[in-house]
């Protein structure tokens, strides 16, 4: 007679559950003893003054801005989504940039890796 799987695994499963109960209890109890919850209480008052430095610029305002200036690349041509062409000039730039194909090709050639790193360095700094 073959034993049913349950007969074999039941003792193991029970001890495993006891294990889990035990180590959850141990972990929680030792953190309780450390008083870690109180220690992690937010230091909001201390950081309030710092917020004056990091609060992001207001998103909403009631000024009319540069509606008629074309200084932000928002001339009538880029207004039409049909005219939207991606010519990235940032870190995705095609020249030595990070398109999938270029990433693969660049990696084949150590000299290109070096040239690429220098180009990126210049662009970022």
């Amino acid at each position: 007679m073959l034993a049913k799987a349950g007969d074999i695994f039941e003792p193991y499963l029970e001890s495993h559950i006891m294990d889990k109960r035990h180590f959850v209890k141990t972990a929680a109890s030792s953190l309780l003893a450390l008083g870690i919850v109180a220690a992690a209480a937010p230091g909001q008052a201390a950081s309030m003054d710092k917020c004056f430095g990091v609060a992001k610029a207001g998103q909403n305002d009631c000024a009319g801005i540069s509606g008629l200036h074309s200084c932000k690349g928002s001339s009538t041509t880029s207004y039409d989504p049909g005219d939207f062409k991606a010519v990235p000039t940032g870190t995705c730039a095609k020249m030595g940039g990070l398109s999938m194909q270029q990433a693969k090709e660049t990696l084949k050639d150590p000299a290109r890796v070096k040239a690429f790193e220098q180009a990126m360095q210049k662009r970022i700094s």
Binding site: A57, N60, D61, I65, G73, S78, F84, P88, T91
Partner: peptide, 26 residues
């Protein structure tokens, strides 16, 4: 559009850096 673009620059700094200011604006 200009208000929205200003806000999007703050919300997507990585995309702005990847595309560059002009393409990001478009």
């Amino acid at each position: 559009r200009a208000h929205a673009c200003n806000a999007l620059q703050v919300q997507f700094p990585t995309i702005l850096a990847m595309l560059g200011a002009e393409t990001f604006d478009a």
